[in-house]
Design a protein around this nucleic acid. Sequence first.
DNA 1: GTCAGTGCAAACTTTTTGCAACTAC
DNA 2: GTAGTTGCAAAAAGTTTGCACTGAC
Lengths: 151, 151
Amino acid sequence: MIFTEYLTARKNRKTPERFAILDMIYSIEGHFDIDSLYVLMEEKANFRVSRATLYNTIILLMDAHLVIKHQFGSSSQYEKCYDQVTHHHMICTQCGKVREFQDDQLQADIEGTKLTKFTQTHYSLYIYGLCSKCARENKKILINKKHKNEK
Amino acid sequence: MIFTEYLTARKNRKTPERFAILDMIYSIEGHFDIDSLYVLMEEKANFRVSRATLYNTIILLMDAHLVIKHQFGSSSQYEKCYDQVTHHHMICTQCGKVREFQDDQLQADIEGTKLTKFTQTHYSLYIYGLCSKCARENKKILINKKHKNEK
DNA sequence: GTCAGTGCAAACTTTTTGCAACTAC
DNA sequence: GTAGTTGCAAAAAGTTTGCACTGAC
């Protein structure tokens, strides 16, 4: 297992906490933040760890390329990334909802970009805009305003 | 001026603070965070504003598409974006340094992506990896370790 | 047995909020 | 005059840190 090898190589200890956290993370689909991971660990895995340990472990997992970090919204969001299909993110600037999508061509374009003096390991693409729901609501508000002004 | 029109359209007030902040931001090349903006406002523009006002105004400016927000590192980074050339970001995962680059083809590829139920307004591309300096240092450390082990 | 790793609480940083005072309209 | 804005200070939210204790090796 990659994490075991990683810990051995770095002469880090293989604590039960670390493996329990890794297991929990890999059972989660999609994004999560430290707080929801903390709650999940306790409720689903029945394993109490401190938040400090979660932060520590997450850093190791990012280093081992097993987890990636996103920073939309106020708190950092994390996501498993080993053996996952690369995806891109659409973020609604109004309601904050994040949707993922795949696009092999786009992925190839980005990964194929030649960079000087830089070795690419991974990337994040965030596309901002309005989801259909918010776009619809904006239109409604606009119409209401117009009516008001016309009175 | 766009900001004036924007404020008028939203029936917001045209306060001196707002214009002083906008001017300051447009005199800054590259990224800045709220704290350095706060210091700059006082030192360069000789204009005291509270942090709360900076946060409030930045939100307006983002809404007006005059400023965009990035979230690498611990504090949010902002950047003017009107009439600017779109660029992408290379972020070194070791030293945290951010470098910008341009790539018209890549930009066209991303902006041309067809999205369902989503209206794209702008995007951010962050490419993570190692800058040449950190890559060189890593190699050195590796060689040193090898020497030690061979002793 | 040793020292990396953990839990806890306190500290710290960044951002948000409530409220009184101010001012653009 | 009256809301929308501002400044201030307090609070909230997220993350880091110091220290004593624990347990992997």
